[in-house]
């Protein structure tokens, strides 16, 4: 066989291909590809652009032009107004009230829900007991139950616990509804930790909490970051629970924003509305742009939340 190939005459044409294969940078296929991506990028980026430019225009300019034009005269007045003067019914202290309410709801909700769920996930992956898988399965199927089914009885439970209309009540609701996805997240993460590590720690005499705090916690920083991103975004963006389980003076930001923008009385101040919308979206946006790949990991992991 080797003999045969040696006798085959080689194609020794001077122009024969040699060296690096020439690349066609502007092949029609590539142009199509980038053009399609670009068109989609415009569709996705447009609303953010519109929010920004509208919020920087004065009302007269808005009435004359369309939403897409850049501001001729940049003004920050709408932002100031949205933050501290816009009215919702009786209160006229702007979104700042809702912002602080949301912060007050957010911090305990995120901390408690993650603390509870991480311990759940840890117990489920390393300390299974009879029935633990059943409860876990109920939890996961529960994630698909429309919230509407559980809204009213939960309101009754909160009332019985004297938590209805309070921050504590809302924190509890967020902890409950964050539990399926977070538990899944932590359970899968802890299950991926080599079982031998857990065994070694038991031989070394560490107990349930010892292993959790000394071995597992220090190892699972990334998953905690993912969980925090998931929860901060989710809780900040919540509207339904906020509107049902809180009272007007502790309404979270989303509820207040909707009340400001969709209030029927008075002249519509579109620039203020867009500034308010943008301010409300700012927290999750900052988290999104700052966390990059971790956010992607979080939503891919948290996909079941639906």
């Amino acid at each position: 066989m080797t003999d045969a190939s040696a006798t085959t005459p080689l194609d020794l044409n001077a122009n024969a291909p040699r060296g690096q294969k020439p690349k066609k940078r502007f092949a029609p296929r590539n142009i199509m590809l980038y053009a399609t991506l670009f068109v989609f990028a415009v569709y996705y980026a447009l609303p953010l652009y519109v929010m920004i430019v509208t919020s920087l225009k004065g009302m007269p300019e808005i009435r004359l032009g369309n939403v897409f034009g850049p501001p001729l005269e940049v003004t920050f007045q709408p932002w100031v107004k949205a933050w501290s003067e816009a009215c919702t019914g009786i209160n006229c202290d702007g979104l700042s009230r809702g912002f602080w309410n949301s912060v007050q709801i957010l911090i305990p909700s995120v901390v408690i829900s993650i603390a509870v769920a991480s311990v759940n996930g840890y117990a489920l992956s390393n300390w299974r007991f009879k029935g633990s898988e059943i409860f876990y399965n109920i939890l996961i199927i529960g994630a698909f139950i429309p919230y509407q089914v559980m809204l009213y009885p939960i309101a009754i439970i909160l009332r019985e616990l004297n938590l209805f209309g309070t921050l504590g009540g809302l924190v509890m609701v967020h902890t409950i509804f964050g539990m399926p996805i977070l538990t899944l997240l932590f359970r899968n993460y802890f299950a991926s930790v080599p079982e031998e590590l857990f065994k070694a720690a038991r031989v070394d005499g560490a107990g349930f909490w010892g292993i959790y705090f000394r071995i597992m916690l220090p190892m699972s920083l990334p998953i905690f970051v993912v969980a925090i991103i998931l929860q901060v975004t989710g809780i900040w963006n919540d509207f339904l629970f906020g509107v049902i389980y809180t009272k007007p003076d502790i309404y979270p930001m989303t509820v207040q924003l909707n009340n400001i923008v969709n209030s029927v009385q008075g002249v519509k101040e579109y620039n203020v509305n867009m500034a308010a919308t943008l301010i409300t979206g700012l927290v999750p946006l900052v988290i999104y742009f700052a966390s990059g790949k971790l956010f992607v990991r979080g939503i891919a992991a948290g996909a079941v939340k639906g």
Binding site: E196, K199, A200, R202, D204, R214
Partner: peptide, 29 residues
């Protein structure tokens, strides 16, 4: 309990606690 049995155990994947130093690993038990 495993820790009360008077045994030491060595695992296939080593199972070293990744966030502790070698010294920490040895002294944890």
């Amino acid at each position: 309990e495993p820790s009360e049995r008077g045994i030491g155990m060595v695992f296939q994947s080593y199972a070293l606690y990744p966030q502790m130093s070698v010294e920490g690993n040895l002294s944890f038990g």
